[in-house]
Amino acid sequence: MNQPKKQEFKTPKHIDDYPTGPQYTAGFLPETNAGWRTVRPLVDHEACVFCLRCYMLCPDGTIFKDNGKINIDMDYCKGCGVCAFECPKDAITMIKEEL
C-alpha cells in the first residue's frame, strides 16, 4: 500500500514545536474517514478484470493494486459508490455498513 497511514498527533509542548505556517508535515493524517460510511464496497475478485477504472476514479484514492488484485483502504473509504457505479463488469457492490 502506497497511501499515507493514520499517525498520532502529539500536542506541542513548547512554542518551538509549532510549525511556522498554517501547514503541517506533508501527508500527516491524525484521523480516519471511515466513520462517514453508511455503505461499503465489496469486490468480487472472480468478476474483476483488473481494468483499474475504479482505481483511477476513486475520489479519495483508497483503491490500490495489491499483487494483481484491487484492494481498498477502508480507513479512508467514504462509501460514495463511484467505484461500484463505474465498474464495467459490476464486480463491486455496495453493502450496508453495520455495526
Partner: peptide, 27 residues
Amino acid sequence: VKNMTDKEFFYGHKACAGCGGSIAVRL
C-alpha cells in the same frame, strides 16, 4: 492508469463523498 505512479498525493482529505473536484486534483 497502468503506468502512473502508485503513490497518492491527495489522500485522507475531508471532501464530501463522491467529490468531483478531488478526482481532478488527485489525478
